[in-house]
């Protein structure tokens, strides 16, 4: 399963970014191997519609689980339709810590605001 975490930096030590569509980086982690790849979010500085565009972007990367802060209405609709499970990380911790919390089953499911 591929997991996407919105991040402020390119490493697992970087803090989780709470914004989804405007996150500076998406970090894609393979849950089986633990290998990861950081990709700069091409829509981070977009004028509008960045939520659904970012959602499309991570769908195209075959993600099964998303860890982020707040996911807006339009992006949420797209991600839900694609069957992506969404979790919220708001502890301002690192990407690595969020992954541990996901494994430990203590991350909250992201609910509509």
């Amino acid at each position: 399963m591929r997991i996407c975490i919105t991040s402020q930096g390119e490493t697992l030590e970087a803090p989780v970014e709470e914004r989804f569509g405007r996150a500076p980086y998406f970090i894609f982690v393979e849950s089986e191997t633990g290998s990861f790849e950081a990709i700069e979010n091409p829509f981070a500085r977009g004028a509008g519609g960045v939520g659904p565009k970012a959602a499309q972007f991570i769908i195209n990367h075959n993600v099964g689980i998303l860890i982020s802060g707040m996911v807006g209405g339009n992006a949420r609709e797209v991600l839900e339709a694609a069957g992506i499970a969404m979790f919220t990380s708001r502890s301002a911790g690192t990407v690595k810590a969020a992954l541990e919390q996901l494994k430990g089953n203590i991350l909250e499911r992201s609910e509509q605001q």
């Binding site: 977009g46 519609g49 960045v50 959602a55 499309q56 769908i59 339709a81 694609a82």
Partner: peptide, 10 residues
Amino acid sequence: FCRYGAISVL
């Protein structure tokens, strides 16, 4: 193509 993010294709 849509620069406004109005279309998502699954």
